[in-house]
Design a protein around this nucleic acid. Structure first.
Lengths: 212, 212
DNA sequence: CATGTCGGTGAGTGCTCGCTAACATCGGGA
DNA sequence: TCCCGATGTTAGCGAGCACTCACCGACATG
């Protein structure tokens, strides 16, 4: 299901030069563990997944996971740090490329929808398991998230300088809730419209709610 | 903190006639456990709360909880059943009282915002711990939730008969994500605007996103 | 080719936690 | 008043799980 995903999108903080064969295998396995962990955590919750499950999902058994992560909490931390970093990076790239604030907001919305649809598991884990992190990692993730929000608030402020920043912050959070609704409701069985249709609806709703 | 809450809002399925003193105490304790459990589950997640915690939160210790619920899962089930029942009840009352579809949708939005602000803990638990339920209870809750959604879809369909029901269902879910954003972002520390302000912003955003 | 490192395994350890058992206390109907 | 059932207590059991340990084979470097 995730075979067509852009790997760079959620790449963990990894040694960028795995020269040797063994290093490449290790990097692959680490990435595989993170992917599987995101899916499992999204399905059963952080506490509902065992280290054994994590290993089994990538074909190794139990304690082998400790060769790649110091513990279960570190797996979750890597997922959340990777996600918030990807979001922040994407927002900055998209804003830099935009010609004017209106284009910037449209691009932000499109980028966020893309991310939510492509990385549904990560989105779910992101806003469900944040408090499971140790204080250090939690603070780091929260800082990254705050910077992401502030990019939205700045862009909104450029479009509507008459509105208070506190109001724009509420609006930004509400828009995230709207855009992140698909990963959640996608878990509910039932016939869903095509992904392209959903994308269009969400973009339209986000835009009009933010600018209303 | 929950002392001023309307008890009827999330009252569990309880004996409505606790004539005797002892019966009243039992009902109170049961309600207290449910309230405390909602808060604790929202803070630490279902798996992060022990039966001991549940008892301690209401001044009894550990196994006394088993005098009121057959097990930990039953506490969660009672919370989620109560919440989805309250939402469904409220939606039906509100729609019956409305003069026309437009008034119905506005009332639905206002009702949902009120519920999300008053019962933030329950809202968080509702869409975070559904899969922890045993299949029977999960199916019941899901059925109640589906009926709630269908009331929204029906109302939307009356306002916009040109739109497909699948699209309206996506819109309804997105609106829930939007309206439920406050309980989630309220956990993030930081200065927030007054509750009345938030309410107005959310209602405006929900309306314009649904009708866009 | 010898050797150290590295990723893997199976067995085991200690702790947490849901739940039960056995017993104390007390309110309230006969 | 008496006694039963309901509500609480503490002690303890058993399972599950994160994590450690001792060991093994294979790859890569001198």
């Amino acid at each position: 299901m995730a075979s067509t995903l852009d790997e760079a999108g959620t790449a963990p903080i990894t040694d960028p030069s795995p020269r040797t064969e063994r290093g490449r295998l290790k990097a692959d396995r680490r990435a595989a563990i993170l992917r599987a962990a995101a899916t499992l955590f999204a399905e059963r919750g952080y506490a509902g997944v065992t280290i054994e499950d994590l290993g089994a999902a990538v074909g190794v058994s139990g304690p082998a996971v400790y060769r790649h992560f110091p513990g279960k909490a570190a797996v979750l931390a890597a997922i959340l740090q990777g996600a918030s970093l990807s979001l922040l990076d994407g927002a900055e790239r998209v804003i830099d490329a935009a010609q004017d604030p209106e284009a910037a907001l449209r691009s932000l919305i499109r980028f966020h929808v893309d991310f939510a649809l492509a990385e549904a598991d990560v989105i779910i884990v992101q806003d469900r398991e944040l408090e499971q992190l140790d204080p250090g990692a939690r603070h780091e993730v929260r800082t990254l998230q705050r910077r992401y929000v502030e990019h939205w608030v700045d862009t909104l402020h450029r479009l509507r300088p008459d509105r208070a920043e506190t109001e724009l912050r509420v609006r930004a959070h509400a828009a995230f809730g709207l855009l992140n609704s698909t990963p959640h409701s996608a878990r509910i069985p039932g016939r869903r419209p095509a992904e392209g249709t959903v994308r269009g609806i969400l973009e339209e709703m986000a835009w009009s709610s933010l600018m209303s």
